[in-house]
Amino acid sequence: MAGRLTKFSLVIFLIGFSLMTHGQAVGNTDTHLVKINVQPITLLAVAGASKLNETHLTVNTAGIITKAKQLKWTTNQTGLKITVQSDLPTENQNYRLQIKAAKLDSNAESNGWVTVTDKPASIINDISTEIGNCAISYKAEKKTDKPQHPDNHTILYTLTE
């Protein structure tokens, strides 16, 4: 008799537990779980660029022609930097092109004037969990051993680790 009673109690308990775990309403109150999941975001855009983080730039005897005059970025990551590089092989460049992140609205630091080559070079270091922007300054000087042909660059900016 006691054994049957124990089995009956167990069945009642299991039914009750099942109802609770499946979120059945119990009177005048009810609960559910709401989770906010924030994933890594790392975004960079070049204002005036044809693509998000890529722009065209021409250097000739008249100066520098480009529409890319500002960078904007958003990241919720730490320890990032912004690099710049050209698709024009360094040995084919007739001008020494330099870029500087100016008017920096960021907690990070500008590296000052940076020479653009076909390898990534950092123009801003130590970017962490922020939205930021800066102006882009350009200057170029002709290499003495090169002809006066214009340089056509596709400049790539990257927000990276």
Partner: peptide, 11 residues
């Protein structure tokens, strides 16, 4: 409910 935040506009 899960709200996943994974998009933004740069800046």
């Amino acid at each position: 409910i899960t709200l996943t935040i994974n998009t933004a506009t740069a800046g």
